[in-house]
Simulated assay, not measured.
Amino acid sequence: MAWGQRLSQSINTLPLRLLPLEFGLCFVGIQILLLVRFVCKAWNLAPDGGWVGTIYQISDMALLPLQMLLPPLHQVFFTRIEPYTLLAIVLYGFCSRILVHILKMIIYAHIGIDRANSQGSNVRKTVDRAN
């Protein structure tokens, strides 16, 4: 395979190869958002408009699956510290690792199949030219 053809093929697969990175960065963004929420709640910052209220509103969407699955905690200790937030940070990190690895396996299998098909067609063209 010629150098130019390899370069063209790697440029064509670049967006596909960047997909796991982008997917992982989305999960890191969610984790950072939840960490900021945890710190704001621990410092007992009021959600009076501004950026703290926005952080609370956006992070509520990320916490919704855990709040629906687990029972509510009504204890005095949990008024400032939210265990759901810490659990969500860990679970989002765990799910991110698993899903990114699965996505990488699928993409690299797809790229490998495409390369094998293109190399097979190049071999057939070479054999046809030789005959």
Rank of each mutant, 00 (worst) to 15 (best):
L103A: 12
F23E: 01
N12L: 15
H74Q: 05
C95Y: 10
N117M: 15
V123K: 08
R37N: 08
R37Y: 06
Q31H: 03
G4A: 14
R115K: 12
Q57V: 14
L19F: 15
I102K: 02
R37L: 05
L33M: 13
L70R: 08
I89K: 00
N12W: 12
R80G: 11
R17Y: 03
S121A: 11
Q9D: 04
G29R: 02
N44G: 11
Q31M: 13
Q67F: 02
D128G: 00
S10V: 10
H110N: 13
N122Y: 08
R124C: 08
R80T: 13
E82C: 13
V123N: 05
G93L: 01
L103M: 15
V76R: 14
R115M: 13
F23Q: 00
A88E: 00
I106W: 06
I107S: 00
A2H: 08
F27V: 04
I102F: 04
I81V: 15
R17N: 10
P83G: 05
N117R: 15
S96P: 03
T13I: 06
M1D: 13
I11P: 00
G53E: 08
I102S: 03
R17C: 04
L103C: 10
Q119Y: 11
I113L: 11
I106K: 06
V36A: 09
F78R: 10
L18H: 02
V127A: 09
K104E: 12
G4N: 14
T54C: 09
L103N: 03
A88Q: 01
I81D: 09
N44Y: 05
A88N: 03
G24S: 15
A130G: 02
M105N: 14
W51G: 06
R97V: 04
I107W: 00
N44I: 09
L66V: 06
T54F: 14
I58F: 05
I107Y: 00
D128V: 05
Q57I: 12
P83A: 07
H110R: 11
